[in-house]
Design a binder for these strands. Sequence first.
DNA 1: GCGACTTCTCGAACATGTTCCGAAAGATAG
DNA 2: CTATCTTTCGGAACATGTTCGAGAAGTCGC
Lengths: 231, 231
Amino acid sequence: MPRSHGRTGRPPLTSRAEILEAARKIIDRDGWERLTMRRLAAELGIGPTTLYHHVRDREDLLIQLLNEHAQQTLRRDLPSDPRDCIVASAIAIHDSLAAWPWAAEVLTADGFLRRLGQPALEMVEAIVGAAAEAGCTSEQAVHLFRGIWYYTVGEILVRAHSDSRRAGDAHDAPDDAFFDRADLSRLPHLAGIGNRWPALAAQDTYAAALGAFVDGLLAHAGAVPRIEPRI
Amino acid sequence: MPRSHGRTGRPPLTSRAEILEAARKIIDRDGWERLTMRRLAAELGIGPTTLYHHVRDREDLLIQLLNEHAQQTLRRDLPSDPRDCIVASAIAIHDSLAAWPWAAEVLTADGFLRRLGQPALEMVEAIVGAAAEAGCTSEQAVHLFRGIWYYTVGEILVRAHSDSRRAGDAHDAPDDAFFDRADLSRLPHLAGIGNRWPALAAQDTYAAALGAFVDGLLAHAGAVPRIEPRI
DNA sequence: GCGACTTCTCGAACATGTTCCGAAAGATAG
DNA sequence: CTATCTTTCGGAACATGTTCGAGAAGTCGC
C-alpha cells in the first residue's frame, strides 16, 4: 500500500506546462491551423501518444489554452448600472473569444462553462449578479445568462466560418446571384434586399443586438425596463 | 466546340438522387453517426472517391439532406401579427433543425443561408417581411434576422454537444462539485446557485428568450414595442 | 473508322485524432 | 539484490475526409 510519502512509478519527462508552452509557440510561429497533435509532439521531441497522458483531448488542450488567454485578456472595470454591467460583461467575453479564431472549435465542447477558469467565471458571476440586482430571481438570472451565451456562441461560430470565404473566387456574384435558384416572386422582401445582403451581414451588430436582447430579457423578467433610443 | 445538343463524356453510373437516398437509408437504419463517406460508397457499391463527383463535400451532402428534411417539416400557418409571426417562424426553423441531431455539423457552414432551399428561405422571408411590417427598415430587418439566427444556432449547437453527457458516469457530482476548483468566495451568486445550475440549464427556454429578444429588437428599431407579461 | 475531347470511376495515398498494448523506468517491500 | 508495483512512454494500427492521377467509356468533327 502506498505511503503518503512520495510518488511512485516512472518519473515523467513531460509536463502539462511544457505542452501548453509548446502549443503557444507553434501557434505564434506557424499559425493556429498548424497546431496538430503530431506536430506538437514533434516540437517537444516526444511520441504523439504521450500527449494523451497529460491532456485528455485535443479539445482539452485548446480549452486550457483558451483559459490562459482569457486570464490575460479579461480586464474588468464594469459599470455599476446592472443593465450596462450585463452588456459590458457579455461584450468582454465576446471580444475575448472572437480574438481567438480557434475558440470556435471548442466553444460547444461538453461542459464548457464548467471548465472555465476563474476570470471567465467572474464574468458569468457579474452577469448573474447584475441580473439579480436588476430584480431577477436566480432562475431568471441563469436563463438570462444562457440566452446571452447562446447568442454569443452563435455569433462567433457563424462569423468564424464565413470569414473563410474571403479566399474564394474574386468574381463573387456580379449581379443578382446571391439568392440564387430561388423563386424570388414568392420572396418579395428578400428580392428587394437582393445583393445588399452580404454587405449587411458583414456589419458588426453584436453589441447593438445584445443591448436589445438584454433589455427584452429584463423586461420579460419583470425587472426594470429601460429601452434605449434607436441606434 | 460543344453544341447545346446532348451531353458528352462517359455516362454516369451514379446520380445525386441515388446518393441522397442511400444516405437517408443508412441514417434510418444504422443511425446518423454511422454515415461516413466510405460507408455510403459501400452501400452504393461504388468507390469512395466517386462520391466527390456528385457532391462537393460531406458538408454539401448534409446540407442537401437537411434541405430535403426542411421541405417536409416546415409547415407554415403563421400569425398575422408581425411580432408573433417573427417568433413563430423562428420557432419553426429552430424545431426543424433541432429535430436533426447532425444539423449541428453543418449549421455554421460557409454561406449556409445562401444554400437553403425554398421552404427555408420562405421562413427567412417571413421574418424579414414581418419586421418590415412592424416598422423596421430593410437594414434593421436583416439585422433582426441575423440576431435571431445567431441565437438559434448557438442554442442548437450548445444543446447538441451537451446532450452527449448523458452517457457519462452516473455519480455526477454528488455534492457541490459543479463549480469546481473555483474560488467561490469571489463568486457569491454562482455559489448560491450551486448545483441547481445543471437543472436550470437543462430547461428549454428557447421560446421565452426568443420572445424577449424579438421585443427588444423591435423596440430598439423604433418599431411597435409590446412587452409581454412575465412568464 | 479515327483522333480529340469530355465526363466519370476509383485505387493509392496523405494527414488527422485517437486507442491498444507492450516496454521502460523508478519506488517500495522482502 | 530481487520481485513486485506503479506510472510514463511511444510505436503500430484504425477510421475518417479528401486529393491526385491514371484509366475507362462515351460523344463529336471529320
